[in-house]
Amino acid sequence: MKIHHISTEEMARLRQHYPHAFGRTPLQRLWLTLAWLGFGAALLFSLNHLGVNFTRIWNGLDRMGVIAGGLLPPSSGGAFKELFMALLESIGMAFLGTLIASIIAAVLGFMGARNIIPNWIFRFSLRRSFDFLRGVDSLVWALVYVRAVGLGPLAGVLAIATSDIGTLSKLYAEAIENAEKRQTEGVRASGGNRLQVIRFGVLPQVLPIMLSNALYMFESNTRSATILGIVGAGGIGFHLSDRIRAHRWDEVGFIIIMIVVAVFLIDLISRYLRSRLIHAGAGKGRQAPSSMIEPH
């Protein structure tokens, strides 16, 4: 086999004709450098704007070391029972809030789905209300409810329920819109009325998705319920912020460990239940939930 050697002239000609095949052109390199420089400048500006500087970090690290040292060994400060009850209260708030939200969202989700109620003005305004409820964080709702209904876990339950109604209604509406048409048509063809179409055509398809999403929200709400106490809405958050303000770091460490363990356990239970749900669904030839919410 003859090997064709490329001469230097040929090489130069090729380079001129196909500059992109030989790596970045000088112009491209210039743009890239400028883009990185611009990015760096924006980064520096932002950090400076937020008051981040080396001295502050350095000084803070000193105090951070003291805090980290204080976290260990963790200690309940003799109030284990009280802390445990507060943790249970957080979980209870998350459970009840999610339950209330998913019941209300099931109704609202059907109302917000295109294939159930085709009126677009109604649907549009309903969907924007969901966005509003969802856009306000549960901590904000908690603070508002504390002002409106008083201190305590009721405010927390209502806060979780309110922001979840937005999220779950949106997800449920999307799940209902994605439901298989053939089954609803089948029910209609055999003489089912509107309610029967929903009950026997749509609901069996979307129920596993709804339950699965509700469990997801329960997981994420357990995490939020641990902090609502900071604004007085019940749960372990009150004790946590109280201990942090009093610089009792060993107790802070203890509470954080409690939260991590509780969240881990709830995740485990919820994951088990969800896998059962999806399994049960898949066994009957159902598709995996398509409108599952994204991971946290």
């Binding site: 937020l50 105090r63 995490r223 641990t226 942090i244 610089h247």
Partner: peptide, 26 residues
Amino acid sequence: ITRTVPEVVYALIFVVAFGVGPMAGL
């Protein structure tokens, strides 16, 4: 573990260590 602890808890601690302001939040 770092992802399980809520942001607000870190914020509470960092406000003590680094002072009030956006740096603690960041």
